[in-house]
Design a protein around this nucleic acid. Structure first.
Length: 848
DNA sequence: AGCACGCCGACT
DNA sequence: GTCGGCGTGCTC
């Protein structure tokens, strides 16, 4: 701003106050910096921080990106290109979000572009390759909104050719012959004429329900009167019409008739004839139409009926304690045993937060976000509830995103990535099962933990956060003990169900005595038989999928290995394949040893598939179902397995971790952990914690609603200290033991860990890069802060050789910040060496 | 992440 | 002689 003097008259033609604006944008690419584009002067008033703009990036790419800042400082080193177009007139990313994204990039050592990439549903990230397609529900001659000329051109182009034809943005631009065509696409989207998708594979497959309504010329009392006369001799048809009028208040509002009712409710109702319904449709009395429905249908009547439920005394007490803690603390840990009824407490707190006018985010791990819980929440919160699930299509995610922006959804229940939703007025954040490792994203950066991100987001927005778990993460409990988090314990199980009896069975002894029946001890076998005889159900937990972790030729010792990874191939019997669990590589199962031709090839070890297989032979009367990654890959198979078990169509459920989470089955009286040792003896400082959590969680599946359950843990080493704590379900004792270990060995929560992985196709280059990086780190951070480099147990994945360096840092903020700067500098040293140009470096902050 | 520019092998 | 391999460097 320059000084101005009174006597200097403004020159009218010079437009002295003409400001040139520049926008710093976040490109959805892993680039370290923001890029500055120039705002076309006539569009100055359209720039919104948090809105999307279209820019040309590089020679031929056009991209949408997020405006992070607007200013008047022209770049000095280059000529800024112009922004091509503005997509939004209001932010799609809110201010608190931008702040959060910056924090994430900083904390997790990644770029803002990577954060944006993980955060935005891909339909919000437009590029010249984005595609449009006519909406399946669009009817050209029965469309409520008029279309402009340009819009009509697009619709015409999309309707000629085969069904479901799509065009890229580039093609739309060519068709219209103008550069600024996005506004037409946007308008067409708002009118539900077209929808967007990014790749050919994510085409929209909406769920359509057939509905019927009364033809519009019957919607008046007189007309209906006349209709009754007309149908007087056709009793079946009359019944249908009567039922329709009963269910749909046609007289009260024409709108109600327009919405109609489910056809299935008429055709499948008792005493009503489906053919009568069809005759009515044929005669033009009823009309049939399709409606696209959400995955979680809400029955309005249900919503009213279930609004109110009462908390038990224990629950009221716990809720009040949480609220008391919230008066002085922003974060509260609700430590409640499985089955203590935490969900009801959450619902109660959500209601209060909503009454106060704030938004609520309720995070759940993926396996716990079931239709059961969603329907339950739907009943209470109805259309104010948004659901964000990873199995949803991109269009559905955008709908939730926009719903949060517009205020339509005040509560969102969702998985890890729901922390990215554009809240601006969060009052309450709930992270249920906060210890769950699935909150942590591993592979593409940002390698974030949604629990930590949620805490930071809540902090930025002044929201309270409730962390819930039966087996809190050691780090979390430590914070609560230290008084930084409030702590509320809920120890009584709901409905008086006692804790299950937990029994250890020594597999080593059984093996010596040769009493093992395949992988079952006689004790587990006998108990299963007895429970099944009493018509009760059994869950078996085996933390390894497939049939066997490897196969072995008994004559020459040949073991098939993955060609891309340093692992043996697992045998999958059903698929008759050898598979790599790390890269997806698979071969046909050979009929004989390819090395020596012997047919003496045996499977070694066992996974869920073998357990299932053995049981089918050993317990022929039982119905055995397996639930693991392999059997739940298809869209609804998880739900199918659960409901079959719920309805007791299956008696034994064998599965991996999937069976440990949040499933409430009233009739399960026995849980078996087939091999506890593989879980405990894992080369990682969190092995005991994970084992404790797993055992307690899976034990929680046994015995509910008054029945006392039994848990049998098979182990070759029953003396392990951890079992003692599991048996007595003594979290506190486990915690005390574990925290001492952590303090002694300098692990979290006392130190912060950053794991660097160096990857290269050539072992020696990778090793050299890792050694140099270690040296650079030692020079900057000191010898004691750096461990490694070391090849991990699985030292090659997807043809990349791995080296790991572990950095241990003090948790002090200033130290951490300086250390990260040092770390980045050390990484740059590697990147600058020609020899290491092909080295891939990944930083994982707080690895799990 | 793309994509263009650029320098060395098997083909018309 | 050219077409094309993918190494590396840049994108406001």
């Amino acid at each position: 701003m320059s000084l101005s003097f009174d006597f200097v008259q403004p020159q009218p033609e010079a437009a002295a106050d003409r400001v040139t604006l520049f926008a710093d944008v976040i490109l959805p690419l892993p680039l370290p910096r923001l890029y500055t584009y120039r705002v076309p002067f006539e569009l100055n008033d359209q720039v919104v921080v948090g809105g999307r703009v279209i820019v040309q990036f590089g020679a031929k790419k056009t991209l949408s990106c997020i405006v992070a800042a607007v200013h008047e400082t022209p770049p000095t080193l280059y000529q800024a290109k112009y922004i091509l177009e503005f997509i939004d007139d209001a932010p799609v990313v809110t201010q608190p979000q931008l702040k959060l994204f910056r924090w994430m990039a900083d904390y997790y050592l990644c770029t803002l572009g990577e954060v944006i990439n993980a955060a935005l549903p891909s339909a919000l990230k437009l590029s010249s390759e984005s595609r449009v397609q006519l909406h399946p529900a669009f009817e050209p001659d029965n469309h409520p909104y008029p279309l402009g000329d340009q819009e009509q051109k697009v619709v015409d182009a999309l309707s000629t050719g085969e069904e479901g034809k799509s065009m890229t943005f580039t093609e739309v631009g060519e068709l219209l012959g103008i550069a600024s065509f996005h506004k037409y696409i946007k308008s067409l989207m708002q009118k539900d004429v077209v929808f967007l998708f990014e790749h050919l594979k994510d085409k929209f497959a909406p769920k359509v329900v057939k509905k019927v309504r009364l033809a519009h010329h019957y919607v008046s009392e007189a007309a209906i009167e006349q209709l009754f006369g007309q149908l007087a001799s056709r009793a079946k048809q009359l019944d249908v019409v009567m039922r329709y009028l009963q269910r749909v208040p046609v007289y009260q509002s024409e709108h109600a008739n327009h919405r109609g009712m489910d056809k299935a409710a008429l055709t499948s109702a008792p005493h009503l004839s489906p053919s009568a319904v069809n005759t009515l449709i044929k005669n033009g009395i009823l009309e049939q139409f399709d409606q696209i429905v959400s995955r979680f249908p809400l029955d309005e009547d249900d919503a009213q009926a279930n609004m109110h439920f009462t908390l038990s005394d224990t629950q009221v007490e716990a809720r009040d304690a949480v609220m008391r803690e919230f008066q002085t603390k922003d974060i509260v840990l609700l430590h409640g045993v499985t089955g203590a009824g935490k969900t009801e407490i959450y619902i109660d707190l959500i209601k209060q937060a909503l009454d106060g006018g704030g938004q609520v985010l309720y995070l759940l791990p993926e396996i716990a976000l079931t239709a059961q819980i969603v329907t339950r929440l739907m009943r209470v919160f109805g259309s104010r509830l948004g659901v964000y699930h990873s199995k949803f299509s991109d269009n559905e995610r955008v709908e939730v995103w926009n719903g949060v922006l517009s205020g339509r959804f005040q509560v969102v229940v969702g998985v890890r990535s729901a922390v990215f939703l554009p809240f601006d007025n969060l009052a309450l954040t709930i992270v249920d099962e906060e210890h769950e490792s699935s909150y942590k994203q591993y592979d593409p950066a940002p390698r974030y933990n949604a629990r930590e991100v949620a805490l930071m987001m809540a902090h930025f927005q002044g929201s309270k956060t409730l962390l819930g778990s039966a087996t809190p993460a050691v780090e979390t409990y430590y914070q609560a003990r230290a008084g930084r988090y409030g702590l509320v314990s809920l120890t009584k199980r709901f409905g008086e169900a006692g804790l299950p009896e937990i029994v250890l069975v020594d597999t080593r002894k059984s093996r010596e005595q040769k009493t093992m029946l395949n992988h079952f001890t006689p004790e587990l076998m006998a108990e299963m038989e007895s429970k099944l005889a009493q018509q009760e159900q059994v869950i078996l937990f085996q933390n390894r999928r497939g049939y066997a972790p490897f196969i072995n030729c008994l004559d020459c010792g040949w073991i098939p290995k993955c060609t891309n990874c340093a692992v043996s191939l697992s045998y999958h019997k059903q698929a008759h394949e050898l598979r790599c669990h790390y890269c997806g590589h698979h071969d046909r199962m050979p009929a004989q040893c390819p090395a020596c031709g012997s047919r003496n090839v045996k499977t070694v070890g066992f996974g869920t598939e073998k357990i299932e297989d053995d049981l089918k032979v050993m317990l022929p009367q039982a119905n055995v179902q397996r639930m693991d990654l392999d059997t739940t890959r298809a869209k609804n198979s998880y739900q199918q397995i659960i409901s079959d078990f719920e309805q007791q169509k299956t008696n034994v459920l064998v599965g991996t971790q999937m069976v440990t989470k949040g499933l409430d089955f009233a009739n399960v009286s026995l849980v078996g952990i087939i091999n506890a040792d593989s879980i405990i003896h894992y080369p990682d400082f969190r092995a005991h914690e994970r084992a404790f959590q797993m055992f307690v969680q899976v034990s929680g599946r046994a015995g509910r609603k008054g029945k006392k359950g039994k848990v049998i843990i098979q182990t070759g080493d029953p003396e392990q200290v951890i079992f003692d704590k599991v048996i007595r379900n003594d979290y506190l004792e486990f915690y005390e033991y574990e925290i001492t270990q952590r303090r002694e060995h300098g692990y979290p929560p006392f130190m912060r860990i950053i794991r660097l992985t160096v990857k290269h196709v050539d072992v020696t280059v990778g090793e050299r890069a890792a050694r140099l990086l270690t040296q650079e780190l030692v020079d900057r951070l000191g010898r004691e802060a750096v461990l490694g480099p070391e090849a991990p147990y699985i030292f090659r994945i997807r043809n990349f050789y791995l080296q790991e360096i572990t950095i241990k840092l003090s948790r002090e903020h200033t130290v951490l910040k300086a250390a990260k700067a040092d770390l980045m500098a050390a990484l740059d040293v590697i990147r600058d060496q020609k020899e290491f140009k092909q080295v891939r470096l990944a930083a994982d902050v707080d690895p799990m």
